[in-house]
Design a protein around this nucleic acid. Sequence first.
DNA 1: GTGATGATTGGCT
DNA 2: GCCAATCATCACG
Length: 213
Amino acid sequence: MNQIFLNNDTVAVARALLGQELTYSDGHTQYQGLIVETEAYLGERDAASHAFKGRRTIRNEALYGPRGSIYVYTMRGLFLLNFITEAKNKPRGVLIRGLEPTAGLAQMIQNRHGKTGAELTNGPGKLTQAINLHTLAYNGQQLGSVPLNLSRQQIQQPQLIRALPRIGVPNKGRWTEANLRFVVWGNPYVSKMPKSAIDWQNRGWQNEKTNHG
DNA sequence: GTGATGATTGGCT
DNA sequence: GCCAATCATCACG
């Protein structure tokens, strides 16, 4: 299993995932992208979590799986991708909210019906559509035991990680306010990144080496 | 470029 | 029936 998940701390995992490369093959195209935005969901006590107050159903069962396993759920016909971050029966995880594409770009544009640039992958439902991940079959499986995986090493190092409130969590008091969303500051594939803050040169990474166009 | 709104699928009460 | 860890689109200015 990837070393990241040995942190035993959901927030630490959410931060450590930034700059990691996600890889997925749909059997036709190999898709890759750097993770630029994540959200932490802290289990039974977190009013925004699907496991709030210990709720456990067939639908969210994969949230109770072991660290490093996959939790996918649908919402309004979209698929949202999460990784489980702590021990079995501790329903905590990280939602992947933004990707900077590094492979499979042309097919992503097609999957997204001609959308380009940040609109390709700057949202949790958008990125799964871009990489053609539309199945619940990986639920409960370990990353790497299926065609979905993380690169072994950190590919890029963020210059600055900012912690901000999560998106789509209204009327939940301190859980609405909590800074549990983590972003690579300046990266254009982050939801609602102010245009004035976008770093067009390095996209928020240290020592940018490659140019993806 | 920001904010409001309608679309729309499936799970749960 | 209701509501959701969303998205696309359309008014603005």
